[in-house]
């Protein structure tokens, strides 16, 4: 039996950075996915009663199909349980502990054939980060959380937003965004093609731009891998199936810094979609990058 790989997103950030607030938003947001969210502090999950289908000591089930549960002492055991769950959720979200190295967790999604990498989102508290950044006890691990992120979200940045954004940009190469200003976050975090649902707005959100290709272009594995290396840096997500030159086909997935190429069934055409933040991505740049690819 072959199932689609389960994408996993890791939410990192120090104590009080706003991870739970983000999770509360994602659970309630209208993204059309059955999320499974694993949290450290169950008590802090605050879901509108109207959205709650049932709840027990360590699991909340929402009317939109999402599930939120506590993680036991063994994170990887919990990931294994999520994979064994039937029906398998559409997307797994792990809330890392305040000090965790998110890369070590997210790496499991790259290693495990039944999973796919869904990115690392690091949440930073604007009020506390400048002080923590000067604390020798803790700063190296918190800086690493920022360095490993595919997306950095700032909370409560207030007047210090500009210097903080500058500092965070120095620590890594991920986009740094104000969490408050970001709407329809699921689109960015979970990919651009949620299953269509009746009544769901179809128009893309103005904060994002996308680019797509459908055509006869074929590339072999080596060419794809070389080409992905030079993709425009503003591409946050990209996925599709590229037909190979020898009857094979390759599924590609890009999330932030991470790329994956897996063998796929050839389709009648090569198809590719890319998504990024309007402030960082020019679709023309993607078009140039793609058309420069030798056929």
């Amino acid at each position: 039996m072959s199932m689609a790989p389960l994408p996993m997103t890791v939410i990192a950030g120090y104590l009080g950075a706003g991870k739970t607030t983000l999770i509360n938003r994602l659970l309630a947001e209208d993204h059309g996915l059955r999320l499974m969210v694993m949290v450290n502090d169950f008590g802090a999950i605050n879901i509108d009663k109207a959205l709650l289908a049932s709840s027990d000591e360590d699991t909340l089930t929402l009317t939109n199909g999402c599930i939120c549960c506590t993680m036991g002492a063994d994170l990887f055991l919990a990931i294994g349980d999520a994979l064994d769950r039937r029906p398998r959720p559409d997307h797994l979200i792990i809330e890392a502990s305040g000090i965790a190295d998110p890369g070590r967790i997210a790496n499991a999604a790259i290693a495990e054939p039944d999973m796919s990498y869904g990115g690392i989102v690091t949440v930073v508290d604007g009020e506390n980060f400048p002080m923590l950044d000067r604390d020798d006890l803790i700063a190296p691990q918190l800086r690493a959380q920022v360095a490993q992120a595919d997306l950095v979200l700032m909370n409560r940045a207030g007047d210090g937003a500009a210097p903080l954004q500058e500092r965070l940009a120095m620590l890594g190469d991920a986009p740094v965004l104000d969490a408050g200003s970001l709407q329809d976050m699921g689109r960015l975090l979970f990919g651009m093609a949620p299953p269509p649902r009746v009544g769901a707005p179809d128009a893309p959100h103005p904060a994002y731009v996308s680019w797509s290709y459908r055509g006869p272009k074929t590339l072999d594995h080596a060419a794809i891998s070389a080409r992905l290396e030079t993709r425009p840096p503003g591409v946050f997500r990209m996925k599709g199936i590229i037909n190979g030159t020898d009857g094979e086909a390759w599924e590609i997935q890009v999330v932030g810094k991470q790329t994956a190429i897996r063998k796929a069934h050839p389709g009648d055409a090569t198809q590719l979609v890319a998504l990024g933040l309007k402030s960082r991505l020019d679709p023309g740049e993607v078009e140039t990058w793609w058309s420069d690819t030798p056929e």
């Binding site: 990887f76 055991l77 994979l83 070590r104 997210a106 499991a108 290693a111």
Partner: peptide, 18 residues
């Protein structure tokens, strides 16, 4: 090296610390 890389093997060989 480390749990993430070992995870697919542990899962398939049924190595379960719990």
């Amino acid at each position: 090296q480390e749990m993430a890389a070992m995870f697919p093997i542990m899962r398939r060989l049924g190595i379960d610390f719990r």
